[in-house]
Computed example of a mutant assay.
Amino acid sequence: MTGRSRRRPQDPPAAAGLLRIIGGRWRGRKLRFTGAEGLRPTPDRVRETLFNWLAADIREARCLDLFSGSGALGIEALSRGAAHCDFVDNNPASIAQIRRHLQDLAAETLGSCHLAGAGDFLARADNPWDIVFIDPPFGRALVAPACEVLEARGLLAASACVYIETGAGDVVPEPPGSWHLHRDKTAGAVSYRLYRNRTGAAQHLHEDQ
């Protein structure tokens, strides 16, 4: 994702401009990315824990990687068997890099890249997702608006999972009432949690169209 720069001792591959896929069909593959202000891929240790949590849900899932940056979360999901992932970022260089990653992996048909802000993209979306990754720049109060739109427009499938990553010191907004906290953990400067949607799929989707 793009955002404020925060160096993490547990994540040397990111500092070196390398993204390592840690599981699935592309396990061990390393993808180079060009550094950008605030580029902060989710550390290997955090990704490994997250995808252990998602092991029963990832196969054939339709995913959304908001604030995608390097594409670490969405590409890891595809490697582990997700059916499709939408990558969304407002940085043209980040979106171009993700497209190149997908080409290098011969996975162009598995991912769609969208150059847009999260709010604008969600306002136009018309299909629910099974798994949503929300990993915005720390300290900018971007989590709550994304969650509100996902809930209000019915963009989550039944029993969908929503992953939220924030700075360990950031205030985490109260999630929508239909979301149940499934798992949460803190690792160094990162706080991360996984919610599960307890409502039916897309009941509000067309109400505002």
Score class of each variant (00 low, 15 high):
residue 50 L to I: 15
residue 71 G to A: 04
residue 42 T to C: 06
residue 100 R to Q: 15
residue 39 L to W: 03
residue 129 W to I: 07
residue 45 R to K: 14
residue 163 Y to G: 04
residue 147 C to P: 00
residue 95 I to E: 05
residue 77 A to I: 05
residue 156 L to N: 08
residue 72 A to H: 06
residue 157 A to R: 12
residue 114 H to Q: 12
residue 53 W to D: 10
residue 121 F to V: 03
residue 82 A to L: 09
residue 92 P to E: 08
residue 165 E to H: 12
residue 44 D to K: 04
residue 92 P to A: 13
residue 161 C to W: 07
residue 107 A to W: 01
residue 110 L to A: 15
residue 95 I to N: 04
residue 162 V to I: 15
residue 151 E to K: 09
residue 146 A to R: 00
residue 150 L to P: 08
residue 150 L to I: 02
residue 100 R to F: 02
residue 55 A to F: 11
residue 156 L to C: 15
residue 63 C to D: 01
residue 123 A to F: 02
residue 133 F to C: 10
residue 83 A to F: 02
residue 107 A to D: 11
residue 50 L to V: 14
residue 56 A to Q: 12
residue 151 E to P: 00
residue 161 C to L: 12
residue 161 C to E: 01
residue 145 P to M: 08
residue 47 R to T: 06
residue 160 A to Q: 12
residue 139 G to W: 06
residue 116 A to L: 04
residue 115 L to I: 09
residue 145 P to Y: 04
residue 44 D to M: 07
residue 162 V to Y: 12
residue 121 F to S: 01
residue 97 Q to Y: 00
residue 103 Q to L: 14
residue 134 I to C: 13
residue 62 R to H: 14
residue 155 L to E: 10
residue 125 A to D: 02
residue 116 A to W: 00
residue 148 E to P: 03
residue 50 L to E: 02
residue 60 E to C: 10
residue 102 L to P: 09
residue 44 D to R: 09
residue 87 F to R: 00
residue 93 A to V: 05
residue 99 R to L: 05
residue 135 D to R: 06
residue 74 G to K: 00
residue 103 Q to K: 14
residue 79 S to D: 09
residue 105 L to I: 06
residue 47 R to S: 06
residue 140 R to C: 07
residue 100 R to P: 00
residue 83 A to W: 00
residue 131 I to P: 11
residue 138 F to S: 06
residue 156 L to D: 08
residue 54 L to F: 15
residue 53 W to S: 10
residue 121 F to A: 05
residue 43 P to N: 02
residue 124 R to W: 05
residue 61 A to D: 02
residue 99 R to V: 11
residue 108 E to P: 01
residue 152 A to R: 15
residue 120 D to R: 13
residue 89 D to E: 10
residue 73 L to V: 05
residue 122 L to F: 02
residue 129 W to L: 09
residue 56 A to V: 07
residue 64 L to W: 09
residue 43 P to Q: 02
residue 64 L to I: 14
residue 119 G to P: 01
residue 129 W to K: 09
residue 114 H to D: 05
residue 48 E to W: 03
residue 90 N to E: 12
residue 165 E to A: 09
residue 107 A to Y: 03
residue 45 R to H: 12
residue 133 F to E: 10
residue 122 L to S: 08
residue 159 S to V: 03
residue 145 P to C: 07
residue 78 L to A: 07
residue 112 S to A: 15
residue 109 T to A: 14
residue 66 L to E: 06
residue 150 L to Q: 07
residue 143 V to Y: 10
residue 54 L to C: 13
residue 52 N to D: 14
residue 65 D to Y: 01
residue 120 D to C: 04
residue 70 S to D: 05
residue 86 D to I: 13
residue 59 R to I: 12
residue 158 A to K: 15
residue 82 A to N: 10
residue 147 C to W: 14
residue 148 E to G: 06
residue 127 N to G: 09
residue 157 A to T: 11
residue 147 C to I: 08
residue 154 G to K: 02
residue 128 P to N: 10
residue 132 V to F: 08
residue 76 E to I: 07
residue 140 R to H: 13
residue 124 R to F: 06
residue 56 A to Y: 04
residue 155 L to I: 11
residue 53 W to K: 07
residue 127 N to H: 13
residue 44 D to Y: 07
residue 74 G to H: 00
residue 46 V to P: 07
residue 76 E to M: 05
residue 62 R to V: 13
residue 147 C to V: 05
residue 112 S to M: 10
residue 67 F to A: 02
residue 149 V to A: 11
residue 85 C to A: 15
